[in-house]
Computed example of a mutant assay.
Amino acid sequence: MRYDVIEKIGEGNRGEVYKVRLENGVFAALKWSKSYEIDKEWEILNYLKGTFAPKPIFRGKKYLVMELIEGKPLKELIGKKEYYETIKEALKGAYELDRLGVFHKQLGRYYHIIKTEDSVKFLDFERAVFSENPRNFLQIIGYYLHRDSNFDKKDLNYLISLYKENPKKSLEIITKVLDEVIDKTI
């Protein structure tokens, strides 16, 4: 597959990400591995097929090409109504990843949750694994809501316990709680 590199858009300890233009004119993201095997991330993205994740397009030996996700990282939304709306959608996405048996492991990092024009996407699946007991939903509650004074810690602990027994019911309850917080946020 031919592509032209447009610009570097990110870099971490284990990889670099570039915006590229594919031969068909479509913009995509190319993730180059500095120090890890790209195969596992490719396998997980291919399994998810765009479900709250970038759609995979092509894989090379040390890189993968995937859908370019454009939007705002969660960190840019703090203090705005859109922050809680994004958290609500992220919890739905986390529930889906849990249901599909994929544990992202790093959803506690603000820049891994992106608010796009019409949805939420999670980025950076390099450390993700298939799991019989994924904890994406619990990770988001623990990292974002437990630290937020808009939420009662006892209620959140109840929802965490409930999620372990009845994930769908816990998602329904936290969605209603978030709707109340969203209504109060200017």
Rank of each mutant, 00 (worst) to 15 (best):
T86Y: 00
K154S: 12
E76A: 07
S33A: 15
K121M: 04
S170I: 02
I69F: 04
S131A: 13
R135T: 12
S35Q: 06
L107T: 07
R2S: 11
Y158M: 12
S161Q: 10
L45H: 06
K8Y: 10
L91D: 00
K153R: 14
Y95A: 02
S131P: 09
Y111S: 14
S131G: 10
K168H: 09
I78R: 14
Y18M: 13
E37L: 13
L145C: 12
A94T: 02
E11V: 11
K184A: 15
A53W: 02
K105M: 13
E76D: 11
K88C: 02
E82L: 06
L138C: 05
Y158H: 11
V26A: 11
I114K: 01
E7G: 12
E172P: 07
R127W: 11
L74T: 04
I6C: 10
Y63I: 10
R21T: 03
K61E: 15
N24H: 07
G142C: 10
L30D: 01
V20K: 02
V17R: 05
Y163S: 08
K8T: 12
Y84R: 08
D4K: 14
K72S: 06
L138F: 04
E37T: 09
I114N: 02
E82P: 01
L123E: 07
N136S: 13
L100Y: 03
L162N: 02
K19R: 15
N13K: 15
Y63W: 13
N150L: 10
E96H: 00
N13A: 15
Y47M: 07
F130Y: 10
E7N: 15
K105A: 11
L156D: 11
L107F: 08
I174N: 00
E41I: 03
L74P: 07
Y95N: 00
V102D: 01
K81C: 06
Y144F: 15
E96D: 03
L156N: 09
Y95S: 01
E7T: 15
S35F: 06
I113T: 12
R109Q: 10
K34V: 11
S170V: 02
I6L: 15
N46Y: 11
L159W: 01
Y110R: 05
P56K: 02
K72Y: 04
L48E: 01
H104P: 10
V20P: 04
D152G: 04
D179F: 10
L171T: 04
A90S: 09
A90D: 00
E7L: 14
I186W: 08
Y158C: 08
A29F: 04
Y36H: 12
I113G: 03
